[in-house]
Design a protein around this nucleic acid. Structure first.
Lengths: 342, 342
DNA sequence: AATCGCCTTCAAACCGCTTTGGATGCCGCA
DNA sequence: TGCGGCATCCAAAGCGGTTTGAAGGCGATT
């Protein structure tokens, strides 16, 4: 069942039927209702491919996911972000198209999306220091919003980010207030923008109290259980071990916890841990009482909001970029306590 | 730059240019080369929307992700499966479109995908006992492949699955051979097809040795750290606690490990644990030596293969369904050992 | 020399919708 | 009575490709 057939059944022209269905004013209300009823009765759904060609809009948003032969990126946070963004798309009748490409083909993927007209815009994930994608997308003229920020970018761009610096600064201060002064930072990879900001927050908080950051207490690696474990174990083996850890993610946190348990230390009593909690749906930080004290910010909400921002931009392009900074909450769990006297 | 313009620059008709670019035989080789060169020079990429309308094919595969207000589903396995499938799509110039919809709209989502012509086929995730989606997709005539199987389905369908029953049977036998006889099963939700099969494997192995399954040793819940911890702790509190655990996932396994550590039990010595390892890229089971003894099967490979199967079916429709059963490997890690004498 | 057939190329229809630029009919008003 | 204006509706021209049916050119066959 297509437009033409529906129109002929109704004894109307395709023009009128199209307008009736799309809510244009120049059609008689009685006619409109007749058309709507017939459309429903015959289960008519306009062909998306035709709409797209006729309107020149793709009604789709792209997400390019570079996938290295080396691991990284297919990160656990991604699934929840996508779920959030996807909800927004569904509500607005947009499609979400994912391009999974080897990372050396990332640029080609963006260019292809634009020149082949597959999408109306893209969301940029996991921005890095001096991320080249921002200049690239400007050049090819594809609307985009970055989830996160890219330190070093010279061009203006739209973004939505969590205040990572502030979150880690507050977490550090919280630990300092509990009497901890040797605080291990188990950070993500520090070419990732968020990791840079988190370290800054940590360093700033220490410096503000006159504590010089100790490089031996600052680890940077992938946010996996393995890496978290490795980093924590190394720090616990130091002559003056840390009395607290600040950890980049829930998963790293599990590795840290494993190291603590191996060392016979009880979390929350012998040693304190704060993690960053993305509030992942399959990796909750406890039921009622949080396991870990954490800086929390829902990455799923971020997905929802980032997508909304992009759809807004596409619907009503404005000159300047849109930007939004979310604050993480600091939630108190069972993993922190006063620094034990030594 | 579009076909018509390119054609006129070359002094050819759109027909010829189109055929030259698409490798049709009825065009002079010299002409073809001239066309190819011009296309490259002018950076011509055919408009996807036009191709789709003209050919009637969407060149896209859909994945419907129902998202409950309650948790579940946005599961960690999903990201890796998608990454695998996405690789296949990219290689074949297909788009991957994800529909994230509230679960009560799942049926409508499939119908919409078909009637609006957004996709050429879909992949069905996480099949349940008597999954209604199979009959639905048959009815609406959308090609599909199921990742997993759906016990109770009466219609034939294509699927790719891991031999979950066999994997858990072998794992159970392995533990039995080590002298364990009280083995706790920390399973996923048992309306999920894979969880049913795993339990069957476990029960079969026990029965074959004349051991009656003890309901107190069989837990079923979501595969989260929290739930794994809860289940293991409950079993460890039994008068006759298990000496081994068989666990549905890496993440549940971390919860189990936490329970063991709380109970002061050393994994691999005091108590054995086998998990199922989906070989997730961000949640590796150890570097060189596996942490957990595990039944392993890469869900990313599964994604790749499932997508290939679907593309095959679309390219050359055959009457019968395609089916493929992968075997999991049993890899030995540090979490298992002989049953300690009591 | 006329005919046949192959190799190339092209004009035009088509995919299913949107949108422009009228057309038609009717009412109100001068 | 004549005409402007409004409310409705429609024919046809896109959108940018693919594909059908046909035609021109040319060497080979008879």
């Amino acid at each position: 069942m297509n437009l033409k057939e529906l129109a002929s059944r109704l004894g109307l022209s395709p023009t009128t039927v199209s307008r009736a269905l799309n809510g244009y004013p120049e059609v008689n209300e009685a006619t409109r209702e007749r058309v709507m009823a017939a459309a429903k009765r015959h289960n008519y759904h306009p062909n998306t491919r035709a709409i797209r060609l006729a309107t020149g809009r793709a009604m789709a948003i792209g997400h390019v996911i570079p996938v290295a032969t080396r691991h990284e990126i297919v990160n656990p946070v991604f699934a929840d972000f996508i779920a959030g963004a996807g909800e927004t798309y569904s509500r607005n009748d947009y499609d979400m198209v994912l391009s999974v490409v080897p990372d050396e083909q990332e640029e080609a993927a963006y260019r292809g999306l634009k020149s082949k007209g597959n999408v109306d815009g893209v969301i940029v994930h996991a921005p890095k220091l001096n991320d080249p994608r921002i200049a690239l997308l400007h050049e090819i003229g594809l609307p985009f919003v970055v989830h996160g920020r890219a330190t070093g970018a010279s061009l203006p761009y739209s973004w939505l980010d969590v205040n990572n610096r502030r979150a880690f600064q507050r977490a550090t201060e919280f630990l300092l207030d509990l009497g901890h002064s040797r605080i291990g930072l188990v950070n993500g990879l520090e070419f990732m923008d968020f990791a840079i900001r988190r370290r800054t927050g940590y360093v700033d908080a220490l410096s503000a109290r006159g504590i010089a950051p100790d490089p031996a207490l600052m680890a940077t690696d992938e946010m996996t259980e393995i890496a978290g474990h490795r980093a924590a174990r190394a720090m616990l083996a130091l002559p003056r071990r840390p009395t607290a850890f600040l950890v980049a993610s829930m998963i790293s946190g599990m590795g840290v916890r494993r190291a603590l348990e191996e060392a016979g230390l009880q979390m929350g009593r012998d040693i304190s841990v704060i993690i960053h909690d993305d509030d992942l749906s399959y990796m909750k930080n406890g039921d009622d009482v949080p396991i870990f004290t954490a800086t929390r910010s829902s990455v799923r909400d971020a997905g929802r909001l980032t997508a909304e921002m992009l759809l807004d931009m596409i619907a009503s392009p404005s000159p300047g970029p849109q930007q939004r900074l979310l604050e993480a909450e600091l939630i108190i769990g069972q993993s922190t306590g006063p620094c034990p006297r030594t």
